[in-house]
Design a binder for these strands. Structure first.
Length: 572
RNA sequence: GCGCCUAUAGCUCAAUUGGAUAGAGUAGCACACUACGAAUGUGAAGGUUGGGGGUUCGAGUCCCUCUAGGCGCACCA
């Protein structure tokens, strides 16, 4: 694939003195209005060194570049050099790239030999998996897929919230009021019930708190009976989480949660002491972070037990020693910004130079119309319910449309769940949003179903075109690219050209929404092309060229949806 | 009180990192199905980019300040 920007930068470097090719490449822009050109070079900054008026500089450069045949034409408009590349060359280049690479279009080897850890989802055992958990789960999954596509080795970690005094409370409650069958039949709801009942009862029976604390201590010390119950709770909860993960097509390489690090913490408390970082304050041990503009970090409680910041430090060191990561990514809500800043700083103060490779990827809060979610008050929307409802809605739409599909159940699943996933990935991570049924169940406009529909439409055209024509297009021999250099064809080609760059950018910024936006643009552009042009025309040369472009678009849509964690059905 | 984040069309969001006339979707309006899928497309309308200063050839973007909202700030995670 030709890097047009780089080629143009090389040509410009010959005309402009004192600037490197790389510097010039950074200055080249894509005009907002496509009528202006494919690439533009603003000349304002050259005015000082060349001691000439910017428009004059632009004019001179334009005249010289115009002679080069990589361009269709080069003109100057005020201080801008506007360049139009040769459309046929451009379209040929991108169609060949997409069609020949097919499922590998967009993938690269950028990260070869480097290992990236992505921690995401990380629900709390025995608590409901609600709509608030979708963000970490879906964003993390997409970031993992993007890094995988960029050639990195990846490790997916589900850092389960499976430890802490809450389990003492849960076991305590189970012993007082619980029974086995209820837990097996409906683990999460039952366990949550125990947890809330405990909080109600403790009001009148404060001794329950002591009992719970003692049980947790036994758990920490490895008492068999307590361990057995805890393990059982954990397994039952995981079964339920896995049902949702299966629906979403998500899996993990490790479920090492908080409990996994429970015995790995004393080492760091000692290290902190040795390095004189630990201070005593109100009976507890803290690390003072005032000079870094942060409030102090609490390392051990006044009763000597540790907190989750110590677990996170232990986990990071373990991961470095065990995986030797290049990057250690945490997809965790923005509420925990301070927490991450604190512990990453402490890891740095401990002298671990790789602290800089630990990155917190925050995302905004999901709330409900009547306020923030709260398990205790029953104000939650279960993720599984959302997914099921979306699938149901899709099934109805399919029935209405009366489209032939081979497997309505499977298609409804792919489209319905895709709609939820896509919506989650269409805005910048950091924005808060209010969950709304109307929104997740709306399939018009910039939505997952829209992109999937466009893909299905492209697939349908290829089926109608016939094997013979498709084979000719796929061979890429003697294609008359002039037929797809029309306005809408060329616009589509330009968006496809951006696709591989967009994947890199989405990875660098840990921002799947950049990719989401690109495939929406591709879908829009494809639909415009589809309406503007009759694709399956009588003239075979023209038909083959157009089919080649349809194939290229289909490949980008399919791969793009894949990177978001979505299926691309052939019919819907 | 301190810190971080957010504010762009009625609503939900973009804007190539400081560039040309700020763009999409959605809602409402007017159109287009006997061509390859209408979960679609076309058109018109919709803006003092929260307010005010500043930096410069140029600011939605950078700096200062004010306003509104969200999140966090010691024994939960």
């Amino acid at each position: 694939m030709v890097n047009f920007k780089e080629e143009i930068a090389k040509l410009l470097a010959e005309e402009v003195e004192g600037l490197s090719v790389l510097e010039i490449q950074g200055m080249i822009e894509v005009p907002t209005d496509t009528k202006m050109g494919d690439y533009a070079f603003p000349c304002f900054k050259l005015a000082k060194t060349l001691r000439k008026a910017p428009p004059l500089i632009a004019k001179n450069i334009a005249e010289k570049l115009d002679e080069n045949n990589i361009f269709e034409k080069v003109v100057s408009v005020n201080a801008y050099v506007n360049m139009f590349v040769s459309k046929e060359e451009f379209v040929k280049d991108i169609v060949e790239e997409a069609v020949s690479k097919n499922e590998n279009f967009g993938r690269s080897e950028l990260g070869k030999g480097k290992k990236v850890i992505v921690e995401y989802s990380s629900p709390n055992i025995a608590k409901p998996f609600h709509i608030g958990h979708i963000r970490s789960t879906v964003i993390g999954n997409s970031i993992y897929k993007i890094y995988d596509a960029l050639g990195y080795e990846t490790v997916r970690i589900n850092h389960l919230g499976d430890y802490g005094t809450q389990f003492g409370k849960m076991i305590c409650a189970y012993r007082h009021w619980g029974n086995k069958e209820d837990v097996i039949n409906d683990p999460i709801k039952t366990l949550l019930g125990y947890y809330t009942k405990f909080h109600v009862e403790v009001e009148n029976h404060p001794e329950l708190d002591d009992e719970a604390r003692k049980i947790f201590t036994k758990l920490e010390q490895g008492e068999e009976e307590e361990i057995a119950i805890w393990k059982w709770f954990r397994e039952e909860s995981l079964k339920e989480f896995n049902r949702v993960y299966d629906m979403l097509g998500i899996s993990f390489d490790s479920y090492a949660g908080e409990s996994f690090y429970s015995d790995k913490m004393p080492r760091f408390v000692q290290e902190l002491k040795d390095k004189n970082l630990l201070k005593e304050s109100e009976g507890a041990n803290i690390v003072d972070l005032e000079e870094y503009g942060m409030s102090p970090a609490l390392i051990t409680k006044s009763d000597g037990s540790t907190l989750y910041i110590t677990r996170d430090i232990a986990a990071a060191v373990y991961r470095k020693e065990h995986y030797n990561f290049y990057k250690n990514i945490y997809v965790v809500a923005s509420q925990q910004n301070l927490h991450f800043q604190q512990w990453i700083k402490i890891v740095e103060l401990l002298g671990y130079e790789w602290a800089k490779d630990c990155v917190h990827i925050p995302f905004g809060l999901v709330s409900l119309e009547d306020g923030t979610m709260s398990s205790r008050h029953g104000r939650v929307v279960f993720l599984e319910d959302v997914l099921n409802k979306a699938v149901e809605q899709t099934r109805e739409v399919i029935r209405e449309k009366n489209v032939n599909t081979d497997n309505i159940d499977e298609t409804a699943k792919q489209v319905g769940i895709g709609a939820v996933v896509f919506q989650e990935l269409s805005n910048s991570r950091i924005k808060d949003y209010v969950f709304s049924w109307d929104k997740v169940l709306n399939f018009d406009g910039e939505t997952g179903p829209y992109v999937q529909y466009t893909h299905a439409r492209a697939s349908s055209i290829l089926r109608k075109a016939g094997d013979d024509i498709v084979a000719k297009a796929a061979s890429l021999n003697n294609i008359e690219y002039k037929y797809i250099c029309t306005d809408s064809g060329y616009d589509l080609a330009k968006l496809l050209y951006k696709f591989p760059e967009v994947i890199i950018e989405a990875g660098e910024k840990y921002e799947p929404s950049i990719l989401t936006r690109n495939i929406v643009d591709i879908a829009q552009s494809f639909n415009r092309f589809y309406h503007d042009e009759h694709i399956l025309v009588d003239n075979e040369e023209e038909k083959v060229a157009k089919v080649a472009l349809v194939m290229a678009a289909k490949v980008a849509l399919k791969n793009g949806l894949g990177l978001l964690g979505m299926a691309a059905p052939e019919k819907m």
